[in-house]
Nucleic acid binder design. Structure first.
Lengths: 206, 206
DNA sequence: ACCTGAACACCGTTCAAGT
DNA sequence: ACCTGAACACCGTTCAAGT
């Protein structure tokens, strides 16, 4: 639909003089996919467009990924690594209950800062792929473990069922708030600043 | 990808003898879209496939909807009407706090029973369309009003900010639980029965 | 007024062929 | 081993033409 595009084909390689054939195309494709994701959202994530951005033919992608979904799963796995790091950094500075609340705020902040990546990470396609993709499974399991550990520190004497119940409640709360914000459900009700809202909801008074 | 399909074109009309030209194609398209949504999920919702299922050429759709997104918004608006009815029915039988909890369980149950429709209703496309589509806006505002009313009945003396805070917390909790369930994030942690989990999380002990 | 047929610019996937 | 070119079966959208 009238999208202006450079006429330089894959042949020319454009401004990046690098010739592939060195195993770095995989990383280049992931970078291109992440840029496209941030720019155009999940629906604009066409395999052919990613290949064009990386300077190769679309068929070349299939030498590094089984199909479009496998590429997207790899992007999601990368996202989970950064996500876990962000949660850890937020909890690091504070002790006990405050650390747990800061993790929640960091959760919502990550979603607000990387909406399309967040949707991809927690989308149904990624969950389906967790069975097949070990990297994705490990990355997302790490985030879940951090949650469980946080609850255990809050409730050291609680039994396992209680810990699980509290963990799912906390996760549902931050995930739901993130989803509602991202999908614009809370817009128009004068709640522009996402982080301020997250603090009010997660750490405010009853 | 090897999808078997009937060879009968739009011309023959298939088993439904009805000839359109009577203004019922709009409804027929919405029915076909809802069936396709339940069967194949959001990604399989191709405008051309919907038109085929309704027995017309794909171009005919554009006489009733501006584009693919407008059709999907109409499906979402229908969904919100059924959703509001389900919430109201769940709250109707019980008083006070119990009614509020039953609304929450009904929220998660609706999501579990109509996953693709739920995702469409609360997806970013639908939220974007709320500005343009009055029917969709009214339908989704009705559900939000029911939530606010429920909180007010729980906290009759609370000021408006407190009501809003509680409403967003409750909404985030049920929405997040629904999203995590739908996207398979809680799978594999032996939580098969969605309604039982919803009751445990929303009405269980601390 | 309502629908069709053909066209356009895209997709994801496959596969023989080149280096 | 890695990439290209061409093909196939799909998309959404537009528009002149038919009834």
């Amino acid at each position: 639909m009238g999208v202006r595009r450079e006429v330089t084909g894959p042949r020319t390689g454009g401004r990046r003089g690098a010739t592939y054939h060195h195993g770095n195309l995989r990383e280049a494709l992931l970078d291109a996919a992440e840029r496209a994701l941030a720019r155009e959202g999940t629906e604009g994530l066409a395999l052919r467009a990613i290949a064009r951005a990386a300077g190769v033919t679309h068929a070349a992608v299939y030498h590094h990924f089984a199909d479009r979904e496998a590429l997207l799963r790899a992007v999601a796995a990368r996202g989970f690594e950064r996500f876990a790091a962000a949660l850890g950094a937020a909890a690091g500075g504070a002790p006990g209950e405050q650390a747990f609340q800061e993790m929640g705020v960091a959760y919502v902040r990550f979603a607000a800062e990387h909406p399309a990546l967040f949707r991809l990470m927690f989308g149904a396609e990624a969950a389906r792929g967790r069975g097949a993709d070990a990297g994705l499974r490990e990355a997302s399991d790490a985030a879940y473990s951090a949650l469980i550990q946080g609850v255990r520190r809050l409730l050291p004497t609680a039994d396992e069922a209680t810990v699980r119940r509290h963990a799912i409640r906390a996760w549902s709360l931050v995930h739901g708030l993130s989803a509602l914000l991202l999908d614009g459900q809370l817009a128009g009700r004068r709640l522009a600043d996402h982080e301020a809202l997250a603090r009010e909801i997660l750490t405010g008074p009853g």
